[in-house]
Design a protein around this nucleic acid. Structure first.
Length: 508
RNA sequence: GGCGUGUUGGUCAAUCGGUUAAGACGCCUCCCUUUCACGGAGGAAUGACGGGUUCGAUUCCCGUACAUGCUACCA
């Protein structure tokens, strides 16, 4: 008797895909896979004024990057095509009419100006936001206040109208939320939401119910911001006679900004220097680019893992999970109720962990595009060299973009940024040592780490120098700064000619 | 203003009435390393506040405070 689990992610294609959106997708995906169910992508494009070119394809790209591929979608179809609400437009009106016939909805002719006027006139200190509620509806121009003839005439004249739900008086509407338990609302305090707009498109309220029903959705997950309109949706399910089929709801906690309070927004990312969108988003109107986690150098697996743990945890100490492990362990009941402040440092930590655990050859492939971006001319190196470099510097890298910063000196002669470290303690002994060592290096037949190190160690004392006196200047000469892997390992890899060249550039 | 939801260390968080209130990130100290990292060992919470219920509350109930969301012919 159990229905097959079917969940859906229903974004509206209006711009970049936010962290919170990706997390909603992820929880949908994990839940569906855990229960061997279906994961549907449905595009909620009923607001034609907010349509943004390319946003839908962009969302698909983000899901693909994250490895959260829907089973059914506008692109790949499925048993419930179409998956774009704009293409389902014809479906909704019939249901709105059904509601009118049963007396649970009505036609309203009020113009936007009239609505504005109503709000202005009814605004009080103790009611700063007048709603189209049971008192107000008796004062407006709708099929409740007008006679049937008047209504018919207005429609015949082509007067634009909307369909509104008629909220009952003094009823307690309650629902069970998988995360929050029982939640109830007083119907008298919910307003008569518009269900069908004047352009014939449904609003979210009608569309979400009709489509969830038609697509046989069993569990509906969405952000906490939807909670206040949940009673409207519950009532529509009931009035349409589908109550038995209503999905189980779960309202996910919000992702908050790191400083202060409030929902994390794109602006916060710009302000604090971290991405909020999954991938780069280019506004087609302004051309403005907003950075994404992908382009910032995140591994999708790390990004997903981090998101999974932001608001949910399996109750064990382990924090690193493969997608399969997440699928296995995920349960909606363990989602935290309160919102979570986004912590970019922790996100970077996850990425660092994944970088360490990724095979060097694979990592080299991932890093290469970033290298090409940083210095296209520098990359005429073999994959083998890149792989070695990646292996040598990976423990210093949190983001893929860090690899160039940490390993550029393997490919290009570095700019000496810490010249003072060499100059301040320079003396004749050092000058003589390096001159002598260069000669030694030039004659070295077996160029490798160990030979270089022993050679250096044996030569330094002859000039009254300790190993420590010589190591740091050498590092700066080869690397440009006080960082990086072992100096001799670097020298081995960049080769004799380049090593000598870099030393000479300082010693003259 | 109204309605909803939430509140364990700077952050993410475990605890499903009885613990010295886990762990992770970040921060600080030390060790390792004659660089930077990595790694290792330490340090830092009287669980928003006030009432109950109970032999016993971080855990259950109520109130207050605070935070946040919604209050469009947007989703």
């Amino acid at each position: 008797m159990e229905r097959k689990v079917r969940v859906r992610f229903a974004p509206s294609p209006t711009g970049g895909l936010h962290l919170g959106g990706v997390r909603t997708v992820l929880y949908n995906y994990l839940f569906a896979r855990h229960h061997k169910g279906d994961f549907v992508l449905r595009i909620e494009d009923t607001d034609q004024t907010r349509f943004v070119e390319g946003a839908e394809q962009y969302i698909m790209n983000c899901l693909e990057w994250c490895g959260l591929i829907p089973d059914e979608s506008p692109e790949n179809g499925g048993p419930h095509v179409p998956y774009r609400q704009s293409e389902r437009k014809h479906l909704y009106k019939d249901y709105a009419e059904l509601l009118i016939e049963s007396g649970h909805a009505y036609i309203a002719f009020d113009t936007p100006e009239e609505l504005e006027k109503m709000r202005a006139e009814n605004k009080r200190d103790d009611n700063t936001n007048p709603q189209y509620d049971q008192r107000i509806r008796g004062l407006m121009r709708n099929s409740l206040t007008l006679s049937a003839e008047e209504v018919a005439a207005l429609i015949a004249q082509g007067t634009p109208y909307v369909v509104r739900i008629k909220m009952p008086e003094n009823e307690t509407i309650s629902l069970t939320d998988m995360i929050r338990g029982e939640i109830s609302f007083d119907s008298s305090l919910v307003d008569d939401k518009v269900l069908l707009k004047a352009d014939g498109m449904p609003t979210y309220h009608l569309a979400v119910v009709v489509d969830d029903y038609l697509m046989q959705i069993t569990h509906a997950f969405r952000g906490e911001e939807w909670l206040p309109s949940a009673p409207v949706h519950v009532l529509i399910w009931k009035y349409l006679g589908w109550k038995e089929k209503m999905p189980l709801w779960a309202h996910l906690p919000l992702i908050l900004k790191p400083d202060g309070n409030g929902k994390l927004s794109k602006r916060d990312g710009d302000r604090l220097g971290f991405p909020v969108f999954a991938m780069n988003w280019t506004d087609p109107k302004t051309g403005e680019i907003t950075k994404g986690f992908k382009e910032m150098g995140f591994l999708p697996q790390a990004f997903v893992n981090m998101l999974a743990m932001l608001g949910w945890n399996p109750g064990v100490e382990q924090e690193l999970f493969t997608m399969d492990e997440l699928v296995q362990r995920f349960s909606m009941e363990r989602v935290h109720k309160g919102g979570a402040k986004f912590n970019f440092d922790k996100a970077k930590w996850f990425n660092h962990q994944y970088i360490q655990h990724t095979d060097n050859a694979v990592l080299a492939g991932l890093v290469k595009p970033f290298f090409l971006q940083s210095a296209p001319e520098a990359i005429q190196v073999s994959g083998e060299i890149l792989e070695k470099v990646v292996g040598m510097v990976k423990d210093r890298c949190h983001l893929l973009t860090d690899f160039w910063e940490q390993g550029h000196f393997f490919f290009v002669t570095p700019e000496i940024k810490e010249m003072a470290v060499i100059k301040d303690k320079w003396n004749d002994q050092k000058q003589q040592f390096f001159t002598a060592w260069i000669t030694e290096l030039e004659n070295m037949s077996d160029w490798n780490h160990d030979a270089l190190e022993t050679g250096c160690n044996e030569l330094a004392p002859k000039f009254g120098l300790k190993k420590g006196d010589v190591m740091l200047p050498l590092r700066i000469m080869l690397v440009g700064g006080k960082f990086g892997p072992g100096v001799f390992a670097i020298a081995e890899l960049i080769g004799k000619e380049e090593t000598i060249k870099r030393i000479k550039s300082i010693t003259g």
